[in-house]
Amino acid sequence: MKKTIEGQAYVLGNDIDTDQIIPAEHLVYSLTDPEEKKNYGKFALSGVPQESAGLPDGNHAFVDDGKFESQYTILIGGKNFGCGSSREHAPACLKIAGIQAVVAESFARIFYRNSVDGGFFIPFEFQTRVVDEINTGDTILIDVEAETLTNKTSGKSYKLKSLGEVIDIIEAGNIFEYARKTGLIPR
């Protein structure tokens, strides 16, 4: 597990559902074939309406045309991030696009669980509503151990919610490594 994560923020609003994260028509690609799975990066967040794509202004492409990775590596969200479908393609496509952390006011249950158990990235929660204080393109530094987020562009720092009991799975890497570590499945 990385001690710090630094990158450019891409900011989204409340109730970002999995159809916005990865529209269903794209769920046909292999998640394992190295070439085919790049499509998930290409289409990550392609369902977000233009006006809310990259707040506060909107109209910021998450992944530029013809590219498979985003220049943004930290997603900032409002309430209920990842609501909707159980499709693991949602956290997977964000990771394939280069996302290293999602920090939201709150998460929908299955998306949160998939992020942790699949080991895609750490889903952090703010202690208060912060999404309105970060602009797309701001430079963000997350101190994983101290559980803080600093917006280097504005100079403001925020305490994040403790990861609680899922920290053991996050530290192990994913649910399988956690189960091996604790003896539930053989190494």
């Binding site: 998640l31 479908s85 159980s86 499709r87 693991e88 956290p91 299955i110 669980r113 998939n114 158990d117 699949g118 994913n174 649910i175 399988f176 189960a179 539930l184 499945i185």
Partner: peptide, 18 residues
């Protein structure tokens, strides 16, 4: 309840999930 691919693969192998 609904789960993702990783949890489903875990169940396929172990018959258990947290």
């Amino acid at each position: 309840t609904g789960i993702g691919n990783t949890d489903a693969a875990f169940i396929l192998g172990t018959g258990k999930i947290w």
